[in-house]
Design a protein around this nucleic acid. Structure first.
Lengths: 208, 208, 208, 208
DNA sequence: GATGAATGAGCGTTCATTCAT
DNA sequence: CATGAATGAACGCTCATTCAT
């Protein structure tokens, strides 16, 4: 196709070239937007392709099928999220400071990246998420282990309650995800003070 | 069959006891199972009909369309759940005891009724649930207000943290729902002791 | 069923009885209304039954199936219509006067009975009507032959154009049906003067 | 295939000449046939697709839904019909000659294109047609105004009866459509002589 | 006889996926 | 490689007809 107008996926007169991974990126971005806004079935492949300025068939060059796209998108998000959260993380700080830091950064990240958050929620609350988590629990997948390590150390130092990790995770992240959702849905507006108080309360839940 | 009113038992000539709307009940049961297990789009009407041993058109005698079925099923579940939780609830007990009672009962209910729990989760994490909750926040719908009242009293008595209700709810129920899910998915097995410790930890999150 | 409120199809306290043909009548009336207003597929059997205050299955006591109902309703209408038109018809009047009388009465009938007219139109413009007319042309059915006789006499007396009957019918009734439709749809409002002029013009079309 | 615009012919590499939207054409043809023969509900989308040798979903590439297909098909037919009728039309001829020309051409067109005729009848005798005509009467749509102008001039020259346009249309086209239908249904066989006599008779109906 | 709950084939429509160009 | 027209299985839903009561 020559003289295509939509998109930049051609050798234009100016010599701008959209590389292979540019297209993948566009697909991922479009899928994120549409799925976050409308859910998995509110985001047909054709619509994703259109939003990405890409042919419908092109998506299948980068992702074997829609399920794969959904899973890879999830992993893209995780990979994008962890570095942000871990920036300025001080592994040598006390447990409490480290938890407050991580929780605050995570909550901030969700608030500042609502599309990411809503996608993650869609994913977790779906067969994809259950399967994904099951794989993780069974050790088939590696995730971000900074929380796990923090909690394990916290338990052994008797700073945290002596509960199974799964429950500590629930106590720490359950509220965090809930308030992030409520903020994004507009049921509450979180400012820095409220974020801080929320994370402190989460800490109260897990600390001895 | 004379003067039968929806829900009344009816004795047929053969002596078989049949509830009016045997079929409705079957549909509700089948829909609950399939949606809890597979989500809303994993539960086509035809499949619900098959599981209910009912013709596809029969569902539409009892529910105007799939959305209505989903919403009425949700309300059925709520109506079934609240009395169980509120049984033996003592409104004159101290805040702490009342919270522990309610939290424990709720968690137990979810564990004993995993289909109900997973359905409620599917519902809440969907446009249905968001709309439903928005209506509730705007006062358009009445719900079970026992938690709201408990928290409001707790705040005014300075027993609970002085945080917006929405955040207290998140701190109390976020972990609760998370552990219920983990239990139901088999990531952990909650015994009475663990239930009790979890609810205590939730209390730590909200209390002053 | 006892103490039924809807309809009078029971032995009421006052001893009013709805006879068998009463029900048939109600079904016919309901079907006429609904089909005239909404067309054949805008009139489901269940809706006809409801409008007739009759059980859905009851219709099948009087009519083998929907097609039969439609055809019998058509014949009911014809039988109801002809006597009205033929009232005060003078078989000994001149051709012209007789035609003007019949045409005027027919047009008036349609205007005064728009439901009948719309039903007849629905019927004629459908496979039912085509089959019905084919049977009539092949002599399988008897219809109202007053027009046929009038036209045959008119031709033989050289008062009417020497054209096939089918064409004379078209010239006489084509415009008549068209203006009736336009009146009923509100595209024009016919008063007595306009009716008279229209029928005169039809006469001009067929007379020598 | 480069720069093809809807309707342009395109030569493929193999030298086969293909019209853009071969499939659209096939769908239109199949829909015309089936609807003309069986009416709108006798022509399910799946049957149209099958007759067009096309997947069921393909129809929806070209037509948003069945209603749109029906309406566009109608407009296709009108656009196809008017040029044929207006060929050799002499706007400077006397009213009578012009009417006879148009009427004859129209009747001939219907006889030679029975599918078109039956489709137009189905359309006009349906909610589509009523809505369409209402729009036209209210000036929302432009149609072929040659008849309207002819009649208006004819009235002002006192060549035609001084009747509302709607009635003149009925007098002129009512018989025409009726004989076309009778011919197509096989109730009569129109030759050139009969066509001519019929149109003359229509003229008698409208002329002073 | 009369009922109306139950049925299931059939409808219009969507969308993940393929493949000729 | 990239495309997007084409596909057809599957969806939610309707309704003529049946039959146990």
């Amino acid at each position: 196709m020559r003289f295509a107008i939509k998109g930049m996926n051609v050798h234009s007169a100016k010599g701008v070239v959209m590389t292979k991974s540019d297209k993948r990126e566009e697909v991922v971005r479009a899928a994120l937007e549409l799925i976050a806004e409308n859910g998995f079935h509110g985001a047909p492949m054709a619509m994703i392709a259109e939003r990405a300025n890409v042919g419908a068939g092109t998506i299948y060059r980068y992702f074997e099928n829609k399920d794969v796209l959904i899973n890879e998108l999830y992993q893209d998000l995780e990979e994008r999220m962890y570095p942000v959260i871990l920036e300025r993380y001080e592994p040598d700080n006390p447990i409490r400071e480290r938890f407050l830091h991580l929780g605050t950064e995570l909550l901030r990240y969700f608030i500042e990246n609502p599309l990411d958050f809503r996608y993650l929620e869609q994913f977790h609350n779906s067969p994809f998420g259950v399967a994904f988590r099951r794989d993780k629990m069974l050790g088939k997948k590696e995730g971000c282990n900074v929380f796990r390590e923090l909690f394990e150390v916290g338990i052994s130092l008797q700073v945290l309650k002596d509960l199974p990790l799964v429950i500590l995770f629930a106590l720490a992240f359950g509220p965090l995800l809930a308030v992030a959702r409520d903020h994004i849905l507009g049921f509450i507006t979180l400012d820095e003070d409220m974020i801080s108080k929320t994370i402190e309360a989460c800490w109260d839940g897990i600390r001895r």
